[in-house]
Design a protein around this nucleic acid. Structure first.
Lengths: 186, 186
DNA sequence: ACCTGAACACCGTTCAAGT
DNA sequence: ACCTGAACACCGTTCAAGT
């Protein structure tokens, strides 16, 4: 990449970060290009689709999540490792409005620019879940997708402006379900 | 209302039902007007805002929810009454994509055409919750908004196409939290 | 009273032309 | 190689004109 192109690329990403922070994942791409002092077609050249631009904003967080899961060695307490991962997941998924929906639909759409990193992240979480299940610290009727769904619901709650009041406590109620050891009969 | 106006009104609502079912709450209003064989400005005349049109689609369900809660007399088991209300809530909120977000933001925005019916519904659910709490059948650290938030998270999960696989079971895990009787110390 | 077309300012996409 | 303006088909809003 030429240095002038790199400069445009970085300026677009910087501006996108602040515009998406304000307007959510549906923010106007044209507006981002304007604020970045770049022709709109130039933005499209660097990021041919909305998902591609959002991927640039979110990839770092996703990679951290995957790394955090795989680096947790067997000496660490499985329940604590999973709990830390969940906290990070919610922070990451609630950063911008609409990210959770983006992630779940990206899992279903192999064409999305976000598919690979989301799938990797789900698999990594699944590994942490399996270890916690073996230790008897997590409910046994969950798989990686179930973990993702519950963590996503918690992140959704956390990302609703009208619910911020007690979002931390309420989201914790949801993630706590994961650690339930179901003993009572159905 | 003149009879020709009433005919237009009904045709718009009918078409909107099917278009919103397909495209979610962000469906194109212009497209709805076209399919209803009505000038776009006519649609705006009947429904000056998107919320006003969606309110026409959703009001019946909301009213049912409020009625269901107030009609539950004291002879009924409080836990069963609340459980039934929650089931209805999720069905209603997951009917179209985006409804849950619409409801939570309407609660925060007194100007929204949906504000009144959503607030009434939340209050009605709060009444059922209070009775269940008195009977010791629901956790005591929840209020009407907390109930709404958890039910909303369950409905969110239910409305994600990528999660339909086990949506019923996972959403039930979330709503079950409401009936937990927290006994262990913090 | 109620309906409607036209004008407007936006959006995302595409493409031919510029350095 | 990389950038850009212009044309296009959409969107929601407003308003002056029709019956």
């Amino acid at each position: 990449m030429r240095t002038d192109a790199a400069k445009n690329y970085n300026r677009i990403v910087d501006v996108a970060r602040s515009v998406v922070a304000e307007h959510g994942v549906d923010a106007s791409l044209r507006d981002i290009a304007r604020q970045a002092d770049v022709g709109f077609a130039t933005l499209l050249r660097h990021f041919p689709t909305r998902d591609a631009l959002l991927e640039a904003l979110l990839r770092a967080g996703f990679d951290d999540l995957a790394a955090q899961a795989t680096s947790a060695d067997s000496s660490q307490d499985p329940a604590l490792a999973l709990a830390g991962w969940l906290r990070e997941f919610v922070t990451c998924a609630a950063r911008y409005r609409g990210v959770v929906e983006l992630m779940t639909s990206a899992l279903d759409d192999a064409e999305s620019a976000l598919h690979a990193s989301c799938a990797a992240m789900r698999a990594a979480g699944g590994g942490l879940l399996a270890r916690a299940q073996e230790a008897g610290a997590a409910r046994s009727d969950l798989d990686a997708t179930g973990l993702f769904a519950l963590a996503g619901a918690a992140a959704w709650l956390h990302s609703q402006p009208a619910l911020t009041e007690h979002a931390d406590a309420l989201a914790a109620l949801i993630t706590n379900v994961i650690f339930e050891n179901q003993t009572k009969a159905a």
